[in-house]
Design a protein around this nucleic acid. Structure first.
Lengths: 268, 268
DNA sequence: TCTTTGACCAGATTTCATATCTGGTCATAC
DNA sequence: GTATGACCAGATATGAAATCTGGTCAAAGA
């Protein structure tokens, strides 16, 4: 459209544009679903040429993955803020509660976690194994940390709690899909849920996690602050590195600071 | 209802044959998956004519549903035996433990609950709403019963526990699918599970349920026996009526005793 | 008369060839 | 060195023809 007068060496320009592409993609994704969104649509939505999109992401799928990554990053960022504000948020039951709501309030993540085929097309669950691995590692470290601080029930191994927590959390997440009509689109919005509000369901999840996995012995406030700081570090690391394997600038102008943003120009 | 003379030779013959059809169908289902099994295959496997199959079930899908129904009935029957032998089995955490294992040890049910598309074809999750409703009702009554006997945590409503229990249970079930390679067939049998054995995972589920939903106050042995009897009645009712809406003989020769069997001739 | 059967048919599913669309590339303009 | 959009191969949609199979029913058998 309007070719930029004077090529810019300014890296922040690239990052800003990447964000604009992600914005456009997210908007289209939510409105039409992955199926019906073409790279050209996104380019038009971001007021750039189609080829330019490919300067930022190698493939369409990686672009969409980046959109989801950003949504995840934002959800986790929200949690991190909460943890800094109120350290107890790092305790598993608070964590589960807040993360559950953070996901359910984001249509993109709801769709991702509930594997909504309409939203995702065949993109559903095409998880990068590397991400799963990292996720698993962080989860493991999180629970090991909790164990060290004496937050968890002593009779359970950290990896066992990690497993059971994951199963429980996903059970509650999937239950949301169920009562939204999940697999069978014909059954949308059945009467009324057994437990009326989303908030209450989040509470139930939190109670379950607290009673099943946590030690009922209270943690000292300063201990809790230390733990929270460690957990924040852990998750910050997760978010920062998220998906960067193929987003790191090959020409090397993506520096440390760039890691806070996704989609820095990557083509050669 | 006494059958008119000469009308039907021997009702038990019909039931026996129905069982043979189900056996043949189950065998083929497990070996080839719903996709590849035709009604004719089943008829041949049961040594009868194709039309005869339709004297027992109106449609192919109802036949397959009956196969699954029988598997469910057998799993529940197994639980009922356990409950009579050891009344504590009716407590939610024992129940979850045993039901989890009963399902996981039955390939048909594993496939059903994990919605294995290879096994089920597009049959997956084409649940009869009536069944869901009945299931829901029984679950509700089960937890209300538990509440009355003071087994559940007092601060939670029976329906809330029912919801949370269901979510948790399904979470653990789905986790099994996950580590079997679930949705992405390419990722079959990843390394080794975080929690090594199926038994241990069942234990984790049981602990979670016990701690999260049950009152830690022990129940007197005789109280427990009464509760178990009630629960056995409840589930017996569920199993007996299972799927009978369209299996009940229209000519009326399916009597009370028939309810223990599925697939009594139903054509006009 | 009532039960059982298998040939039969409509409609569903698969196949295969053709047309269309779109992800990704690259020569060109800036 | 950066940005672009015309271009192309391969993916995907379309549709016609061939095949298969669920379900029916007239007739044979008890």
């Amino acid at each position: 459209m309007s070719p930029t007068a004077g090529r810019s060496r300014d890296p922040s320009r690239g990052r800003e544009r990447a964000a604009r592409i992600l914005d456009a993609a997210e908007d289209l994704l939510l409105r039409h679903g992955a199926r019906r969104v073409t790279v050209e649509d996104v380019a038009v939505g971001a007021n750039i040429g189609k080829g330019t999109v490919y300067l930022h992401w190698e493939t369409r799928e990686k672009l969409f993955a980046a959109v989801f990554d950003r949504a995840v990053a934002r959800a986790i960022a929200e949690l991190l803020v909460a943890m800094r504000t109120r350290p107890s948020t790092c305790l598993p039951h608070h964590f589960a509660h807040d993360y559950f709501l953070a996901v359910m309030h984001r249509p993109l993540l709801r769709g991702l976690l509930l594997a909504d085929p309409e939203l995702l097309g065949r993109l559903a669950r095409q998880h990068d194994p590397a991400w799963d691995e990292r996720h698993h590692l962080v989860s493991e470290r999180y629970f090991r940390l909790l164990a060290e601080y004496g937050v968890l029930r002593a009779e359970l191994g950290a990896d066992e709690v990690a497993y059971a927590f994951q199963a429980t959390f996903e059970g509650f997440v999937r239950a949301e899909g169920e009562l939204a009509g999940g697999e069978n689109p014909a059954l949308r919005s059945a009467a009324q849920p057994a437990v009326a509000t989303l908030e209450r369901r989040a509470d139930l999840l939190a109670r379950t996690v607290e009673l099943a996995f946590e030690n009922n012995r209270p943690v000292a406030a300063d201990e809790l602050r230390l733990l929270a700081a460690d957990v924040v570090d852990l998750f910050t690391d997760l978010v920062d590195r998220r998906g960067f394997a193929d987003l790191v600038d090959r020409r090397g102008f993506a520096d440390r600071a760039d890691r806070a943003e996704l989609g820095t120009p990557a083509a050669s």
